[in-house]
Design a protein around this nucleic acid. Structure first.
Length: 644
DNA sequence: GTACTATTAAACAATT
DNA sequence: AAATTGTTTAATAGTA
């Protein structure tokens, strides 16, 4: 019964390590030695460089492959359903945007897994951008409507496909991550196609999309007679559609969790219409041209009336928007991380580009000059789908992914280092809530946190379970395993006290005991520690500052935890806890550098009640995201174990 | 090598 | 009877 968790957790550190590195991307096997940006470069430069590089690699691969297999397409799965469409890409389109990679090519890239996750990511983004350009271009009234429709259908298909690819990639990464030990040989398809398709969009959508595309294809057929348009000559029989191995996209809470219906197609206004622009109908896949607004309206009502097809298209569009939003959020996050990173690097006290109240809070709590206030969990939580860029690699930043790969929850301390400022708090929380990454805390710490977070400082076992699943995507699976561990911990540690209740029993925390228990070691996987040691060049200064702040804060942190934004603070406190424990011990080795990384967070919480209005509040307000509240989704629902 | 902690697995008892 | 909840023991891995 433990196969799954067993694989990801114990037994061979080797495998885990591999899995981790592959996730981290930097050392991923198939990855062509990524040139590490040598010196001072701007973030933009790096990004550009990175993208360029990824594209280069992709092109090379494609070139090779096209030579090898003159055309034999390994259809199936992902793109199969689009082949029929993409095959008809007018040459002109291809020429027009020479850089756009066809879906087939994309598929190949994915299958070959020759690109690192980062590279894939970049590639996808770039392709998406190109797609957009293309769309823009086509929007200009400059061609006949019929051919236009082909083009637009093509575009839609393209877009959709990109989205899918992206999702697949995300799922793929998650899979890798889950199976921690998954080492992918570039040559031998480590992941069979079906595993790639596993995480695809819901079957429903597939179905819808099928309908939509079929409609277009049909249209095309009618016209193709007089338009000897030829495809890209990647002739291959359109493979049968792949029966979707769909699983609920919400399985890992990754995509669907923050489903936010952002349908944008309403607001009818006087003489403009969101679906009408530049004389063109902007209904996805339509782009019919109209002289005047009236005829457009007519068209809209006739062609895009409320029918199955329109509905389907609408839903597809919803998905598109959703994905874009997701992407935007990720990129924003990344940008933030990059900016912060670059700033922090400069060792400036608090010149971070952080917004508003951060400053005040810093001044308040700060006694140590350069204490950067970051409280961050392991690495900026770029989701597994948004791997770190080479930039961070050069610093050997420990990513959440790599953390995860390290194996069991042994790693209790956030080994983040040099982390950006506070925005992470929420992001981390959010991150763990949505990403299937194991939190770097012990069960005991988490249990304690859960209990202390509760209004009564007591929880039933089941409530503890619920907290786990609510707060960490990771604990939404393998329920038997971690629940057992939770029970085990509750029984084992004296710090957890069972209190008989009218209706059953609840668990409480004996803080004294908990504190006693802590002065235990710092642990870390050898790999991790090494990684950190080699990557951290921190001098004693920071460390000292950290310790100082630790000392002055070495008090019950949970007191503050329940105030303000409990959920928010919880993670921070958890970290602090771990930190305290870590600090109680030794410091003068690599592990202590780990410690001080986390540390910084402490700078923000001197006991004054006022103080948690520091960085934390900043997060809640300025950085508030819808996801933040979505933990409600998991609340009081007993039964969602079924999704574990 | 020893001691100790954390995680995972699993057996088993007591309750619900 | 089945599922939960608790308790224990053991194996394994990592650290001091």
């Amino acid at each position: 019964m433990m196969q799954e968790s067993g694989t990801e957790a114990t037994s061979d550190g080797q495998a885990s390590q591999n899995g981790g590195t592959s996730m981290e991307g930097g050392s991923r096997e198939g990855r062509p030695k990524s040139a590490t940006p040598s010196v001072e470069v701007t973030a933009a430069d790096l990004l550009h460089f990175q993208q360029h590089q990824a594209l280069q690699v992709a092109r090379q691969i494609l070139l090779q492959q096209q030579q090898q297999q003159s055309h034999g397409l390994v259809g199936g799965g992902l793109t199969s359903m689009f082949l029929c469409v993409s095959l008809k890409v007018p040459v002109s389109v291809a020429m027009m945007t020479p850089q756009v990679i066809t879906p087939q090519q994309m598929q190949q890239i994915l299958q070959q897994q020759v690109l690192s996750p980062q590279q894939l990511q970049v590639l996808l983004q770039q392709q998406q951008a190109l797609m957009l350009q293309q769309v823009m271009y086509n929007r200009q009234p400059h061609h006949e409507s019929f051919q236009e429709q082909q083009v637009s259908a093509q575009q839609l298909a393209f877009q959709q496909q990109l989205l899918q690819v992206q999702q697949v990639q995300q799922q793929h990464l998650l899979n890798l991550q889950r199976q921690g030990l998954l080492t992918i040989q570039p040559g031998q398809t480590g992941l069979p196609l079906h595993s790639l398709t596993q995480g695809m969009i819901p079957a429903e959508l597939q179905q819808l999309w099928k309908e939509v595309t079929n409609a277009h294809v049909k249209e095309e057929h009618n016209n193709s007679s007089n338009n000897g348009h030829r495809g890209l000559d990647l002739s291959s029989p359109a493979p049968p559609k792949n029966p979707l191995l769909n699983q609920h996209a919400s399985t890992n809470g990754q995509y669907m969790s923050h489903k936010r219906e952002t349908s944008t197609l309403e607001e009818p206004s006087p003489h403009s219409h969101p679906l009408y622009g530049h004389g063109v109908c902007k209904w996805p896949g339509c782009e019919a041209v109209f002289e005047d607004f009236q005829s457009f309206l007519k068209h809209l009502n006739n062609e895009h009336a409320l029918d199955d097809r329109s509905t389907a298209q609408c839903r597809v569009q919803m998905q598109v928007v959703q994905q874009l939003e997701l992407q935007l959020a990720k990129d924003k996050e990344r940008l933030q991380a990059m900016m912060t990173h670059l700033h922090v690097k400069s060792t400036e006290p608090k010149a971070t580009p952080q917004p508003l109240n951060l400053v005040s809070s810093v001044t308040l709590s700060k006694s140590a000059p350069e204490a950067s206030p970051p409280l961050s969990l392991p690495q900026t939580p770029t989701t597994p789908t948004a791997p770190l860029t080479p930039l961070s690699q050069t610093h050997s930043v420990i990513t959440a992914n790599s953390l995860h790969s390290v194996g069991p929850m042994r790693r209790r301390y956030s080994e983040k280092y040099n982390m950006p400022i506070s925005p992470d708090i929420s992001q981390n929380k959010e991150f763990y809530m949505n990403a299937d990454v194991r939190p770097p805390f012990t069960y005991a710490s988490l249990i304690r946190q859960a209990i202390l977070e509760s209004p009564e400082k007591q929880l039933t076992l089941n409530e503890i379970y619920n907290w786990f699943t609510r707060m960490f995507a990771y604990f939404r699976r393998n329920a038997a395993t971690w629940k057992n561990a939770v029970r085990h911990n509750l029984s084992l540690h004296k710090c957890f006290v069972r209190v008989e209740n009218v209706k059953g029993a609840v668990w409480t925390v004996d803080e004294i005991e908990f504190q006693k228990r802590r002065p235990q070691k710092i642990s870390g996987s050898p790999a991790l520690v090494k990684n950190i040691q080699t990557s951290l060049g921190y001098g004693p200064t920071l460390s000292a500052a950290f310790q100082a702040s630790m000392a002055e804060n070495n008090i019950p942190l949970y007191t503050t935890a329940s105030i303000g934004s409990p959920t928010l603070n919880s993670l921070a406190n958890a970290i602090r806890e771990e930190m305290n424990g870590a600090m109680d011990h030794g410091n003068s080795n690599g592990s202590d550098s780990m410690a001080h990384n986390l540390s910084i967070s402490n700078t923000e919480e001197p006991l004054d009640p006022e103080d948690h209005e520091g960085p934390l509040s900043l997060v809640t307000t300025a950085n508030h995201s819808p996801d933040f509240d979505h933990h409600r989704d998991y609340d009081d629902d007993q039964g969602h174990d079924d999704m574990l």
